[in-house]
């Protein structure tokens, strides 16, 4: 009898000590230094923008909310660590347009946090799904970063917001933003050149984000099937895609490699379209140039397809 209680007490204390010890070991590795101004971004494209604007400013810490794998934020849920991260942040940079579905919670929990919405100043395309209902809460197509010219506007908005929030470094932010724009300019030019060569026509898009690419290239999107993280496609929708391809004489399909590959392969078998796999630029290794590199690769793929 006594031994049993002893056993339970011993078991619980061993588990307690072991788990707390391991946890302490685990968290001990990620302690940061002092900083004066803390910026948190909501996901990868925002991080890259902020990274380029902040540059090597001293005592500014820049952190990203979601793990790199999360990609597009449609179904992202804040973890306790995210809330912790935001609790002492000065500025929170988000894309806006409904992608950050948790934004209302954050604003309620931390009323003092300054939120910069990158898409705040631009007009978004309409949400692409045929049915009108969509994961982005019907707030329009928020993937504005996919258009180089709009992306430059996002950079301006973020730079403006940061300069206003952190006046001490405003000059640096504006200079960095200007330099980044200079580097984006060639891409915009290339896109315009592509537009002249593409010569209109219709495409089918397997991800809402490509509506912006199509617009930049002067193409019509005949049908959008928004394939992402957990999309389940019904047989009727597949038939719709095939019908849209037939009716509009579609020759090109824009798709995403991870979620659109199966559908892309199917379309290759059933029709004589060409499937172009573009990057949605939401994943990467947090390199400063990842947007530039990703977009350059996209443009290369597009040129290969459209300019014979």
């Amino acid at each position: 009898m006594r031994r049993k209680y002893g056993f339970v007490a011993a078991m619980l204390s061993v588990i307690l000590l072991l788990s707390l010890g391991l946890t302490a070991l685990y968290t001990g590795q990620e302690k940061g230094g002092k900083r004066a101004f803390k910026i948190v971004t909501s996901f990868f494209p925002m991080y890259v923008i902020a990274e380029n604007i902040v540059g090597d400013a001293a005592q500014v810490s820049l952190e990203n909310l979601s793990e790199p794998k999360t990609g597009c934020l449609h179904d992202y849920q804040l973890t306790p660590a995210d809330m912790k991260l935001l609790s002492d942040a000065d500025v929170f940079i988000v894309n806006g347009g409904g992608i950050e579905s948790f934004l209302a919670d954050v604003a309620a929990e931390y009323p003092k946090l300054q939120i910069i919405s990158a898409c705040g100043d631009i007009e978004l395309l309409e949400s692409g799904s045929e049915e009108g209902e969509h994961s982005h809460e019907e707030e329009g197509n928020a993937h504005a970063w996919m258009s180089v010219s709009r992306y430059m506007q996002l950079v301006d908005t973020v730079a403006g917001g940061l300069a206003a929030a952190d006046t001490a470094r405003a000059k640096l932010y504006n200079e960095n933003a200007k330099a980044y724009r200079q580097r984006l300019l060639p891409l915009q030019k290339e896109m315009e050149a592509l537009k002249e060569n593409a010569g209109g026509g219709a495409v089918v898009s397997l991800h809402e984000a490509y509506a912006y690419v199509a617009q930049d290239m002067g193409l019509q999107v005949a049908y959008t099937l928004n394939l992402d993280e957990e999309r389940q496609v019904s047989a009727g929708e597949v038939a719709d895609v095939l019908a849209a391809i037939g009716e509009n004489g579609v020759k090109f399909v824009l798709a995403e490699e991870i979620y659109g590959k199966e559908m892309g392969d199917m379309l290759l078998r059933e029709t004589d379209v060409r499937v172009i796999y573009l990057d949605t630029l939401v994943r990467g290794d947090y390199e400063k140039n990842s947007y530039l590199d990703g977009m350059r690769e996209n443009i290369r793929l597009l040129r290969e397809a459209f300019v014979q």
Binding site: D75, P80, S135, Q232
Partner: peptide, 19 residues
């Protein structure tokens, strides 16, 4: 819930969300 491919909104229910 999965109508229109929207199940991802509810997938948090499967593992739970402390917030």
């Amino acid at each position: 819930l999965s109508k229109g491919g929207n199940f991802s909104k509810y997938s948090g229910l499967l593992v739970g969300d402390i917030l």
